[in-house]
Design a protein around this nucleic acid. Structure first.
Length: 311
RNA sequence: GGACGGGUGGGUGAGUGGCUAAAACCAGCAGACUGUAAAUCUGCCGCUCCUUGCGGGCUACGAAGGUUCGAAUCCUUCCCCGUCCA
C-alpha cells in the first residue's frame, strides 16, 4: 500500500555491533551504510571512534565518515544537511540507506527536522559566559526566566550549556525559545523509516566494552593519538574531547598511567552506552533485537524482519 | 617489645555525645535533552513494611564490654593497618 522506498536506521549503544549489522544488511539488500555518529565524522579519529575498517568500507560503500577536520565543529544541523544530500543520491541510485546510529540527536534532527533556529554565535556565548562568571550561579537561569519563563522551567539552573543555547536563541531571534521551537520543523518525507534496535544484555555489553577497549589499544590507538598530536592543531580541538582521546593524550604526556587511562576509557564508554540506551528507549517504533549485531542469530532475525517489512 | 597515628556505607573520605541512615566526591541505577550530544544536566542510591508520609520497623561506623536518657563520637580490653623507636 505504500510505495515509499525504505530507509533503515539501526540504533543501539556503542559496541553493540551496529556497524556489523549494517554491513550485513547492506549486502543482503544491496544497500549502503550511512554513519549517524558525531565522532566518526572526523578525519583521523579512526581507532578510537570504532570507525569501520578500510576493508569493510571496501565491501560496502559508507557515507558520512571523514568529512570534518579535527578543528571543525560538527552540529546536528550540519549533519542533517549532509545526510539529506546522501539520501538524495541513494534515492537516485535506488539504494537502500542503512543508518548506523550512535548519536540519537542527529537521527532525530534528520528524521524530525530541526526548528528554524539561529546557529550558534560565539560572540554571544562568550558574553554570556563572562556574565555568568561575574554574577555567579543562577544568573543565566534568571536571565532566561525573563526572556522565556516557559523554557526556563524546562532547563535546570545548573545546565549552563543548555541555558546559553536557549538565551542565545532568544536574543538572536527576538522571540521566546518555546515559540521558535514550534516553527519550521520539517520532518523527513519520502521514505519509509524502519528502525532496528540492538540491546544486548547489559552485562554482556559491558564485557564487550571492556574487551573492545583493549583491542582498540592493540590496534594502534595510541599511535593514532600520537599522530594527531603531531598534527599540531590546538589543544582544544573538539575531537579531543571524545572518549579516550583526552585520556591517551594525558598518558602520552606522562600525566596518567596506561592502566589508569584504559580504566577511565572503559568507564566513560559504559556511561556513554547507558546514556545512549536512555535516549533510544524513547525512540518510537523501534524493532528491538536482544543481542549483538555481529551475532548470526541477530543478523538473521534482522534480515527476516526487514524482509517482512519490505515485501 | 615500645611510641604515636588510624580502622566509617561498593570506593575515597568528612564527622568528636543528640539536629546522623551518617557531609562531599566517585562508582552504580533511572531520567531529561531541537544546532557542543562520546556533550550537558536532573533524581535515586543500607534493608524492609504500609494507609507513600518531611511515615513505621530493623540493621550499620574493626570486635566485645561499659558510661549515659541518648554513642560513629567518651572509657576498657582485644583484633587489624601505617609510621617511627628498639
Amino acid at each position: 500500500m505504500t510505495s515509499l522506498p525504505p530507509l533503515v536506521a539501526i540504533v543501539g549503544p556503542t559496541a553493540s555491533g551496529k556497524s556489523s549489522l549494517g554491513i550485513f544488511l547492506a549486502k543482503e539488500f544491496s544497500g549502503e551504510v550511512m554513519a549517524c555518529d558525531s565522532t566518526q565524522l572526523y578525519r583521523g579519529f579512526d581507532v578510537g571512534t570504532a570507525k569501520p575498517s578500510a576493508q569493510q568500507r571496501q565491501e560496502v560503500p559508507h557515507h558520512l565518515l571523514d568529512v570534518l577536520e579535527p578543528t571543525e565543529a560538527s552540529t546536528a544541523g550540519g549533519y542533517r544537511e549532509r545526510a539529506l544530500a546522501v539520501l538524495a543520491d541513494l534515492r537516485a541510485r535506488q539504494c537502500l540507506p542503512i543508518l548506523t546510529v550512535g548519536t540519537g540527536l542527529y537521527l532525530r534532527a534528520l528524521l524530525e527536522g530541526l526548528a528554524d533556529l539561529p546557529q550558534r554565535s560565539e560572540e554571544i556565548r562568550e558574553r554570556l559566559r563572562v556574565s555568568a562568571a561575574q554574577h555567579g550561579a543562577g544568573h543565566l537561569h534568571e536571565m532566561l526566566k525573563h526572556l522565556d519563563p516557559r523554557a526556563a522551567t524546562q532547563i535546570a539552573a545548573a545546565d549552563e550549556q543548555k541555558l546559553i543555547r536557549a538565551i542565545e536563541i532568544c536574543l538572536l531571534s527576538g522571540k521566546p525559545l518555546s515559540e521558535v521551537h514550534r516553527t519550521g520543523r520539517k520532518p523527513l518525507t519520502g521514505w519509509r523509516i524502519l528502525k532496528l534496535g540492538l540491546e544486548p544484555p547489559r552485562e554482556a555489553l559491558y564485557q564487550r566494552i571492556q574487551e573492545r577497549t583493549e583491542s582498540m589499544l592493540r590496534a594502534g590507538w595510541l599511535d593514532e593519538v600520537r599522530r594527531l598530536l603531531a598534527g599540531g592543531f590546538r589543544d582544544n580541538a573538539k575531537a579531543f574531547g571524545f572518549i579516550g582521546y583526552g585520556e591517551l593524550r594525558s598518558h602520552l604526556r606522562g600525566e596518567l598511567t596506561l592502566d589508569a587511562a584504559r580504566a577511565a576509557i572503559q568507564q566513560g564508554t559504559r556511561q556513554y552506552a547507558k546514556r545512549q540506551l536512555t535516549w533510544f528507549r524513547r525512540e518510537a517504533n523501534v524493532h528491538w533485537l536482544p543481542g549483538f549485531g555481529d551475532d548470526s542469530h541477530i543478523q538473521t532475525a534482522a534480515r527476516e524482519w526487514l524482509r517482512s517489512q519490505t515485501v
